[in-house]
Structures are given as C-alpha cells and as structure tokens.
Amino acid sequence: MDWKLLRKPPRTSRRSLHWTAFASLAAALLGWWLVSRFAGLPAFILPAPEQVAVRFWKALTDGSLLVHTAATLTEVLLGLLAGTIAAVTLGYAIAKSRLFEQLVSPYLVATQAIPIVAIAPLLVIWFGPGIFSKVLICALIVFFPVLVNTVVGVRAVPRPFHDLMHSLRATRGQILRMLEVPAALPVLLGGLRVGATLSVIGAVVGELVGSDHGLGFLVNVGRGQYDTALVFVAVFTLIALALALYGLVSFLERKLLVWQETFER
C-alpha cells in the first residue's frame, strides 16, 4: 500500500551527526574570534566571543535573562497551543466536508496573503503591548502550516481502513480516535515541528514592535545602549529556545511513532 511512502527516509547516524555539528560550530566560533581580533572592528559592531560570554554570565546572574526568556517562552507556548487547537479543529472540519472547505478556503487563502510581520504593529496597537498581542501573533503564524498538515493527514487515511472500520460498525468517535488520529499523527507532528520554530519568530516580532519584556525586548535594549554583546546574548538564547522546541517535538515523534521505524539510540 502507498502507506509506506509516509515513512521517513533512514536517518544519518546520531553520533556522526553530533560530531559534524560540533566541528562546524567550533569552526564558526574560531572564525568569529579571528575576525573580532584582527579586523579592528569596535565592540559595538562586533563583540568578541569572550565579551559575549561575560555579558551572558552577567545577564544570567542578575536574573534578567531568565525573566525575559521565561516571558518569551510563555508567549511561544501559549501561541503554539492556541494556534494548534484552532488549526486542528478547523483542519479536521475542512478535511471531512467539501462544502465547509469551499465555504472557508477563500478566507483562509486571503489571510495567508497577509504578511503577519506587517500587521504585527496593528495587533500591538489594538491589543496592547502585553502578552496577549504576542500570543495572538504566534497563534496566527502557527495556524496555517498546522492547518494544512491536518487536512493532508486526515485526507491521506487510506480508504480500505475506513472500509474496515465501517464493516465493523465503528462509531464516528471510534473512527476519529482509533483511525484518523493515529493515521494523521505523523503529518500533524511534522506541522507542529515547523509551527514551533515559527512561533518563536512570531513572539520576537511582537516583542520588537512593542513590549517591556521578552528576548525581543532585550534585543531592543541592547541596540539602544550600544550593548551589542547583549544583542548577541539574546539572539543566541532565541536560537537555543527554537532548537529546544524543535527537539521537544522530535522527541514526541520518537515516542509516539515507534511503529514507523526502529530509531537508533
């Protein structure tokens, strides 16, 4: 059955992946250090790695980094949750009903044409500089990819499985729970993986436009005070945050989709 096509290609071995990642990271760090050391740029243009490390330690020990990271993480997670719930619900309805799809798809395509980044200032004006406007931006940015993956996942359930369930007189709820959810899960988690990274972008955009906390706010503070090392600290923390979320979804995939392949330890 074409079901096998949904399987993922075999992965590069984890250990060799770790090594190549480590090597390229070390090379980048060395390059950065060489440029900052010998290019003669002032620290507010390009701080040296050790200056950023010192700034990181300071932000960490005075507690400000934790506060702002926690603020961004909260927005990211709430936005991801809200966007995913809305997208999965609507996506399921679209997948199950052609009529509903024809009713809502023009609006969905239209909203997709709006660049969220461009209307972020509008959302901050309307809903204030607090957490709500950020969560909304995250949710909006997460919504579409998760919606599309839900529709694709639910529609891709092979018809013979539906025939089997109907021949056994399964109820709608049983078909949802025992067929559609597990069958669509791989594609859905793929959408969530993309959504998690997008949600971080959404939160930062919202914070840059207007807020009094969060890592995006920290970027603004650093820029305003010519404290470029602080900008670097905030950016690196954001990268770590996005990677952690990505890793979390990958971990979920490995736990929930053991049936797909034998993962390497």
Partner: peptide, 27 residues
C-alpha cells in the same frame, strides 16, 4: 456481524499484530 479480509492485509501500521487482531473487540 461481518468479518472482512481484503486483498491487501489492511493492517493498521501503528498497531502490533496482537493489537490489530483485537481491534473488532475494542470496538
């Protein structure tokens, strides 16, 4: 009550052999 077997085995890939067999009873 119907028992059906299709040309393709039509086993749910996320269920083990045993879990596939018990599906009708779970329903």
């Amino acid at each position: 009550k119907i028992g059906m077997v299709f040309q393709q085995s039509n086993l749910m890939p996320w269920r083990t052999a045993l879990e596939n067999i018990t599906l009708p009873l779970e329903l």
